[in-house]
Amino acid sequence: MGFYPDLPIITQRLTLRPFTRGDVDAVLDYRGREDVALYLFDTALSREECALAVQQRILQTSWSAEGDKIVLAAVLSESDTLIGELSLIWRSEDARQGEIGWIFHPDHHGRGYATEAASALLDLGFQGADLHRIFARCDARNASSWRLMERLGMRREAHFREHALFKGGWDEEFVYAVLRREWRTGG
């Protein structure tokens, strides 16, 4: 059936809005860094790769088929600074499943921005898109990411060991999830 949310989403300190052509340098600022890419599938991106990524994201603002992504820029409302990005992927239409993900600029870690933004996106998923379950995945070594999942109230559902190769070594992965009835919209 699809989902076409009203954007932007305004939270206490942030504006979650679609990407625009002018965002390339701000995205390069964090996606170009090795430390940010450490646990991402992508390696650190070049400027051209960032330009391409931004180009794709401009259109990723709604769902019309399974697998579609909504990708939003997280912007500090006060200074209009782009500090990161979040995604919500439509994984299953009949079972109403979604997957959430996040990447923030290290200069803006540790202030609760990711928690604030992700929480708004979970609201969107459960309330707006009527999802039944939203999950997130991360490398088991990516403590800031799984601690964020726990802060959001997600439950650890899986701990896979050596189930795949990742960047030249064995992968170890966590899956966290939250069900609609566990999530307090607006909370």
Binding site: S92, A95, R133, E157, A158, R161, E162, H163, A177
Partner: peptide
């Protein structure tokens, strides 16, 4: 085998919410 995953209501099976366990051994 070790229990690696316990998915709740992650899919529908024969019209009902599914619950699935994954076990693994190296």
């Amino acid at each position: 085998m070790r229990l690696e995953a316990h998915y709740r209501e992650h899919a529908l099976f024969q019209g009902e919410w599914d619950e699935e366990l994954h076990f693994a051994i190296l």
